[in-house]
Each structure stands twice: as C-alpha cells, then as structure tokens.
C-alpha cells in the first residue's frame, strides 16, 4: 500500500528530515508493505488544513504543529505556555502528561497520534541587551498567535502581528524589534541580518505531531500496524535527540554569525517566570478540568 503524507515544513528542516527517516523505517519494518510518499513544504495541504484533510481521509497520515489547533481546545497549546516546561526534560514530561488527554481528544475526530517531536526551546530576540523585563516596555514585539500576543502584553511590549514570511523585512524596517522563537527559526530567517541579541531562555518547546486517520490505520494488516507503531516510537526518540543537537548547533550558528548570546540576568529571568505563571493560570481557566488533570499530572512527575 502507498500513503500520501502532507507535512508543513520544507525538506531541509530537521522535523521533515525526521519524517523521511520515519517513513524509511516504516517501509523497512513492514517489509515494503507500506510506503509513504512525503509531500513536504505544505505542497499538498496548507498547515491549517492538514488535520481536517487527514480526518476526512483526503490523506491517511499527516504532520502538524500542535498549537495551530489551540483555538479548538486549549489542550493542544499547553506547550505554548512560556516557562511552564523549560528545557527538553520538562518538555518531555509535559508531553507524557498531555498524551492521554490529546489521544482521547483526537479519537473523537477519528484520529490517532503517532509521535511528537519538540522544537528547540524558544528564546528572546532583541536589538539590545536587556537589564530586566522593564526594558521591554513599549517595544514592538512580534506576535503570531494568542499566546505570543498575550505574552507581549504581560511583558509591557506592544504585540504586533507579522507573518513568518515577512519577518526579515519587518525587522529591517523597524516595524517590529523583538520576537520569541527558537534558535532554529532564527537561523532559518538569518536573524543576524537584522537582529543583535539572542537570549536562549528555552522558554517553551512547541511540538510537531505525526498522526494517522484511525480508519486508515485499522485497515492495515496487524503486522503493518505494528511496524508503523514501532517506527513511530523510534522516530520519536530520534527526533527528540536530533532536536537537542539542532538546538546546540543553532545557538552556535547565531553566535558565529555575530549575534550576542548572553545569559539572561536574574531580574530578567524572574520577570519572564512571572509572565509564565500568569499565563499558566489563564490557560487553566480556559482548559477546564482536562487542563487541571494535565497540569497536576505534569507537576506530579
């Protein structure tokens, strides 16, 4: 059998490379009985369409950035709360706490998660070093979703909507002067062309998820199902390891290209953690009982 798999990011991205590794592994483990054609860079479906396309069997399998569906249910965007789970170990625990709830949520849509891979931790890009959070006052901060917009407000900055593709131009012209994103994205957009300082705060690790349509999965032979699940487990492990490597490499690349990568001062860290606590509280209100179960499970680890 041959499956088509829409993915949002281009081939050079480590997430896509991991997807290719996964599909190779599926082919190997299933003895060639299941082949998956990867259509990267949103060439088949655009990111917001991928989940719906898989749900209605327009494609049997797909990949998506989980927080894109945060408006539908807050459980999707728990990995977008800054400083709730900083660093890979915490991010992994958060995923373990999130997994049963998300699995249940997706089952209602006839979907099943296969694995996730965390992006490198997000840090703060600014033009000049910051003594504390007060220095962000009035600064134009790039917001691209509800979480980053709220974060900007709590930091005293002005949230400014700029789409990914317009980031370089928006910074060059002074339309925005700060953003929170991963080192990897900073390297992708060549942040050193228009920014000077990167604080590697590892504030949060958003995740990409690879998931299948449950009916398509059930229609596979048991042997192939097992192969798919095993490949997913291996790809998850490999993906998280790769992500750590990318995180280390990209911060180095930023520095090599002339960006300052200073330690955040204690005052700055305190300020950011305060923002994180407020946002966790607000998220809990939105997410209801499921949210409380998730956070309790995470904190209990």
């Amino acid at each position: 059998e041959t499956w088509d798999m829409p993915t949002p990011y281009p081939d050079g991205n480590f997430q896509t490379k991991n997807v290719y590794w996964f599909v190779d592994r599926v082919k190997e483990l299933s003895g060639g009985e299941l082949e998956i054609n990867v259509h990267s860079a949103a060439s088949l479906f655009k990111m917001p369409e991928i989940k719906r396309a898989v749900r209605s069997q327009q494609a049997p399998i797909g990949e998506v950035l989980m927080s894109v569906h945060g408006n539908e249910n807050a459980l999707w965007e728990v990995d977008g709360i800054p400083f709730l789970a900083a660093g890979y170990d915490n991010a992994w625990n958060l995923w373990q706490a999130q997994k049963p709830l998300i699995t249940e949520l997706m089952a209602e849509e006839g979907l099943m998660p296969l694995y996730t891979v965390a992006w490198p931790g997000q840090g703060l890009y600014v033009q000049e070093e910051l003594s504390d959070l007060g220095a962000m006052e009035g600064m134009k901060f790039r917001a691209y979703n509800a979480a980053t917009s709220r974060m900007a407000e709590l930091m005293g900055a002005i949230p400014t909507t700029v789409q990914y593709a317009e980031v370089p131009q928006a910074f060059s012209t002074g339309l925005v002067s700060a953003m929170l994103t991963s080192g990897a994205t900073g390297v992708d957009v060549k942040a050193w062309d228009f920014l000077n300082v990167y604080y590697d705060t590892k504030a949060m690790h958003p995740k990409n998820m690879v998931f299948v349509n449950k009916r398509a999965f059930d229609a596979l032979d048991e042997k192939v199902q097992k192969a798919l699940l095993q490949a997913a487990e291996e790809a998850e492990k490999r993906g998280w390891d790769e992500s750590r490597k990318v995180a280390a490499d990209t911060v180095k690349t930023l520095a090599d290209n002339g960006m300052k990568v200073p330690e955040a001062s204690d005052a700055l860290v305190e300020g950011l953690k305060g923002v994180g606590e407020t946002m966790t509280g607000e998220w809990l209100e939105r997410a209801g009982d499921g949210g409380k179960t998730l956070i309790d499970a995470y904190r209990g680890m």
Binding site: P10, D11, G12, N13, A41, Y164, A165, E166, P168, Q169, S172, D188, V189, K190, D193, F194
Partner: peptide, 21 residues
C-alpha cells in the same frame, strides 16, 4: 523586491529572504 515567489523560494531553500530581495 518585494516578491512573493522569492519568499516561497527563500523559505523552501532556507536562503535569506533579505539577500534574495
């Protein structure tokens, strides 16, 4: 510049959009 297709290419090829412009 500005150019939609250079943005599309820049994102896909991981090439600096500013330099392409």
């Amino acid at each position: 510049p500005p150019s939609i297709i250079l943005i599309v290419y820049g994102v896909a090829a991981e090439e600096s959009i500013i330099r392409l412009f």
